[in-house]
Structure formats: C-alpha cells, structure tokens
Design a protein around this nucleic acid. Sequence first.
DNA 1: TATGAATGAGCATTCATTCAT
DNA 2: TATGAATGAATGCTCATTCAT
Lengths: 203, 203, 203, 203
Amino acid sequence: MAPKIVDREQKRAEIMNAAIQVFAQNGIVKSKMIDIARKAGVGKGTIYEYFRSKEEIFAACYSQFNRQWEEKIQDALSQTDDPEAQLRALITVSVEGAMQYNEDFLGIMMDFWAEGIRSKNEDMLRIIDLKNLYTEFRALVAGIIQKGTERGVFRAVDAKSYASALIGALDGVMLQMIIDPQLLKWREVGQALIDAFLNGIKT
Amino acid sequence: MAPKIVDREQKRAEIMNAAIQVFAQNGIVKSKMIDIARKAGVGKGTIYEYFRSKEEIFAACYSQFNRQWEEKIQDALSQTDDPEAQLRALITVSVEGAMQYNEDFLGIMMDFWAEGIRSKNEDMLRIIDLKNLYTEFRALVAGIIQKGTERGVFRAVDAKSYASALIGALDGVMLQMIIDPQLLKWREVGQALIDAFLNGIKT
Amino acid sequence: MAPKIVDREQKRAEIMNAAIQVFAQNGIVKSKMIDIARKAGVGKGTIYEYFRSKEEIFAACYSQFNRQWEEKIQDALSQTDDPEAQLRALITVSVEGAMQYNEDFLGIMMDFWAEGIRSKNEDMLRIIDLKNLYTEFRALVAGIIQKGTERGVFRAVDAKSYASALIGALDGVMLQMIIDPQLLKWREVGQALIDAFLNGIKT
Amino acid sequence: MAPKIVDREQKRAEIMNAAIQVFAQNGIVKSKMIDIARKAGVGKGTIYEYFRSKEEIFAACYSQFNRQWEEKIQDALSQTDDPEAQLRALITVSVEGAMQYNEDFLGIMMDFWAEGIRSKNEDMLRIIDLKNLYTEFRALVAGIIQKGTERGVFRAVDAKSYASALIGALDGVMLQMIIDPQLLKWREVGQALIDAFLNGIKT
DNA sequence: TATGAATGAGCATTCATTCAT
DNA sequence: TATGAATGAATGCTCATTCAT
C-alpha cells in the first residue's frame, strides 16, 4: 500500500501549496478554509482529512517555508569558506530569494512573524519558535564574523551584536521590498548594505 | 439642565490607550470590542460614542503612534547639524524608544505593518500609508548622508540605497527586540549597527 | 402653577409633532429616539420626561392623527343632510386631506395600519383598535346609505356591504396616492369613484 | 465520494415558506433570522447557504407571492372576453384568493406595501416596484373598461380613473378582510362592490 | 476516502432606556 | 426640569468544524 502513502503526501503538499497562496493574498486571519479548498480543487471537508485544523495548516506551511529558506542559505554558505564571501552570499541569497517571489507572496512573512510574536497557543509557539530561529541564525552569522576576526580579515568586534545588526538589516530591507517592490533597485540596496557593513568591519 | 460633564478628549484618549494595549496583546484582528471595553472600564456601547468603528480606533491609534515616533526623531535630529551625529542620534532614539515601551506594546507595530501591506480598504490605506512613510523617511536619511558626502565626511555613495539599508537595519533590529527583548544588550547592538555603518561610509 | 401645565402640554405636542415627521420619513421601526429628539430640538432624555417609551409616542401620534381625521369627516358630514351630498363630501374630504400632506407624510398611515394589524402588545392594540375604527366608520357610512334608501334616493342594497366597499375604495385609492403621488389627477379618480358608486346605487 | 444529496430548490422553498409564516406573524422588521431558522427547523447558518441576506429572503418571498397572484388574475381573465364578466372575475378572484390564505398570512401584504413605499435600498425597490406593478395593473383594467366602452356596454368614462378607483376598492376591501376576517360576509361585500361599480358604468 | 450541507459559537454594531449631574 | 453620557441586550451575519452519505 506504499503508493497510497505517496498519494497522501502528494495531496497534503497540494493543499499546503494552495494554502500558502491564499495566505499570501489575504493574510492568514482573513483566509477562509473554503478559499483554500477551492484553490486546491478539493472539497472543504477533504482538508480535514489531511490537517486537523486551520492552525495546523498554517504551522505546516510555516515549517516548509522556513525549511526552504534555510536550505537556500546553507547552500549558499557551503560554496565557500571565505568569511567575506559568505556574508556577501548571505545578503545576495536573501535579496534574490525575496525578489523571486511575487510581492503578494512575500506578505506571508509578515503574518508568520506576527503570529510567532503573539500566538497564545503553546503548540503553535513550539512550531513558530522565532526566538530559536533567530538565535540559531545569529549564531551562524556570528560564527562567520568570528571566523573572519580570527583570520584577521575582520576587526575584533562583538560578533553577536554585529550578527544581530546584519540580520536586522536584512529583514528590514526585505520589509521595504514588501511594502514597495517597484521603488528601488533592490539589488543595489543589498549591495549598499553589504558594502557598508563589510567596509565597517574589515581590517 | 446640565448633563454629566465629561472631557470627551480625555475619554477618547483612555479608550485609545486601552485599545493599544489590547491590540498589542492579541493582535488587531483577534482583538474584540468587548476586550477593549473591559480594559477601558466602560460598556461596549460607550466605545461607539467615541469611535465610529473598530477600524477607526485602529486608525487613530496608528496615527498617534506614528506622530509620537516622528516627533522623537525630529527632536533628536534638530539637536545637531553634524551628519554623523545625526545618524547616531537616529539609531539611539530608535533603540531607546523601542526599549522604553514594554514588549507587548511593541508587537502592535507588526500589525500596523501587516495591515498597511494588505489592507484592501481604501480609507485605511490612506491612513496607513507605509509607502509614503518610508519614502519620506528615506528622503530624510538620504539627505543626511548626502550632506555628509558634500562635507567630505562620508564617501560618495548612492545616498538613497544607503538610506534604505540603514532604515532597514533599524527596523530589523527592532524586530529582534520585539521577538526577544531580554536576550541581547540591545544598546550594544545599536552601537554595533551604527559603528559598522559609519565605518562603512566614512571617508 | 397652571402655566407650567400649559408648558408641559405644549412641549408634549412639539415632541409629537417631531415624532410624526420622523415616523413619516423613515417608518416607525427605523425611526430612532435620537432622530425625534433632534427634530424636536430637545435632548434625548427629555423625551422620556413626556413619554414613557417609544411605543407611547407612537400611540399618542396615532390617536392624534385619527382624531384629526375624524374631525374632518364629521365637519364635512355636518354640512348637509342629503345622503348623496354626504357621500360626495366623504370622498372629497378624504382625497383632499390625503393630498394636503406631502407624500412622505402619508406613508405613516401604512405603519399605523401595519402596527395595528400585528402588534402583540395589548396596550397598543387598545389604542390602535383598527377593528373598532372600521366598525364605527362602516356604521357611519352604512347609516348614510340606509338613510338614502329610506328616502328613496338609493336602491335597497345591503347597506353594510356597500359601506364596506366604499370605505375600501377610499383606502385603496389613498394607497395608490401614496405610492405614486404625481401619476394621476387624483381628484378625478375621486370623482370617478363617487360617480360610479352613486350611479350604482341611485334609484 | 458523494456528499449528502439535497434538493436545494426544495430546501430553499422550505425556508421561504418558514420565512413567509414568520414575516406574516411578526412583520418583516421584527422577524429575526433565528425565528425563521427555528420555524424551518434548520440552524441559523443554514439559511445563509440558501439566501445571501434577510433582504434577499424578503425579496424572494415577495416575488413568489406576486407571481402567484398575477397567475390567478391572468387565469381568470383568460376565461372570457366579455368585459363585464372579466371585471366580475377580477373581483371574485381577488376576494376568493384573499380568503384562501389564513389571516396571519395576509398581513404580509401590508409589509410588502410598506417596504415598497419606503425602502431606501435601490435593489429592493427594483424588486418591489409598486409603481410599476400598479401601473401595469391599471393598464390591464383600463383596457377592459375601454373595451366595454367600445362595445357599447360601458359608458364613455375616463377608463384610467375608473380603473384606479376599482383597483383601489379591491385593495381597500382586502385591507378590511385582513383587519377583521370574521366580521362580514366578504363575498357579499365583493358582490356589492362589483354591482355598484358595474351599475355605475354600464350603459 | 471525499464531499459539501449543516451548524452554532462568536463578533461588530445599534439603539431604547437609565441616571448622574 | 433637562441633558447626553453610558449601557448591554439584541441582531444579522461569518466561518471553522462536523458528519451523514
């Protein structure tokens, strides 16, 4: 009965895909189960065969979204061992990644954040553990900076604070891209960001 | 001959205050009028004596929030004419301002952003004009950078892109403060941010 | 303290006047106390100094409305003793009376009827006793027809049925006047009505 | 694979039926969705599966009501080509039709009229176009009278005015039937009406 | 397994009435 | 006496979830 299991996974993925699109367009709270069902081309009841609740769909989407993002980052970082190149790759991947999706789609990040910040649901918070996510991301970036310092290419700075600042800058630029996708040449903003930052910490 | 005399402005402010707290804790969509009423210590109907709708409360809160923030920024910038000092002041004021509020309170910013990004309501969008807000803020910061370049203290960079990057960094750091207020010595992160940035653009 | 009493009656009348106008424009159910208060130029609470409830205002207006109408009818009938002339006067007074008011104003009659037909409130039904009103009106008209028959100017018909038919015709024409005040030369319709009817029963 | 199969038209009709009963008993404004739901033996939400709003239920009921009435009239008139017989049929059908329904049921006509007279809602007014309804009905009756005049059986009267008067008489008698269904032998009142009228216009 | 009909808890909003001044 | 600020019961409507088929 292995094929059956594949089918289920396949259908689950289809529903998640539909959900992500609907979430992206309407925001999570305003997204209705019926919308997701219609977009997925299934009946309303069918969704409940694959997910316990709307919240579970959200959680699954979030996890997937995150996993994909992390993979991209990891891929980019594994290309080189040079700290400067790694930081450049980090910015490039983020900006390129954000630009890849259409503007509507990006709005979903806001909801992930918002939900993660305020959810009262314990299960939810375990899934959307923003604290942990950022802690790990900070450690990753701080490690790169630390490495740069050890190799003498970066000044001896407080790696954690600088990591936090750089990550913040990344998120903040993405926020502006969400708000006004056409306005600026975002690739250049990304370049400005990394140039300023690298100039700032290079020896 | 004389009805109960009430300071309507005062009461309006009290309700807005209650609303901000409730919005901050639950998010705007999940905040119920009855919650706001209870928090304000008034009846459900009373709110409608002061605001036409839930949306109007939100808009009023947003405007107030923004106005206060802008005042702080303007105050800080007017203290000096030196570009470097102004950029430092900008970061300091933002970080200090964010730390001043309690953590719950800051969460409301997320909803302001989220609402601004996705609201379909024309009236709402006129009020929460994020595009315009950021455009103006970018112009302000770009002006300072430009001034620095002209005075020879900053390198000749693309002022707009750098402004965008700096603002993004500010927002991003604030986001992390929201998510994990205790974690880091945020003042130091602010310092790291401005040090890296200034190092990066100073001649 | 007699003047005080006069003042109270005066104010009560003013409020009723305002109420009738508001009822006429919006219908009774959709008329708000605040509208009546504003139209009367008094405070919302003041109304309750003169009327126990919205229902009581309605009842008072209805009674007044009816009393005035009855007076007009009685006035007209007392001008002559001739049955044919009296029936003509009846139609004329009704049509002229209806035309006197503006169209909006007439709509109130519908609500009086509707309320009278369906009110579940015992007190209300005692006041808006449509059954009794029509019974009396039928008796009045039947009396005139009877008188005509006895004097040999009308055929020997079932006076009650003919009275009912005539009254119905009157109401029905007024209904059309309400619906479409401009459409027809309503005076001529009144003439047609009475001509047909009198031709029909005259010997 | 197959959901519960329901005859949606059937269910829609059942809800309309319940709605008509509730409207008839309480009047439209005082009828609550929950009352209709309970009378129909369904949940509150179920109604909204079949009607978009309370207003839509009302409109559907009104249209149905009217269509049925018109059919009756048309049926009766098609039985004969004789003007006098047609006018007699008109009155008979109306009175018989009105008597067929129970008294509560008829009260709904008042609300249809009242709503038609005062509704501010454009969509509603398109549905309850009383002006047009009466205009058409007047044209129909005037045509019969005209035909009678041409054939020399009726006097040369202003057909439109006489039609309006006859229709008014019909409505007015029905109103009295609503108010006091037991009181009079309404068939005889109908006879009186048509006798008087026909006597009045016959040559 | 798949479906959509059915449901009712939940919510924003309205408004007659009360009552402190 | 006059007022309007305050109130909460009541209502139309939404939507996540259930369940019979």
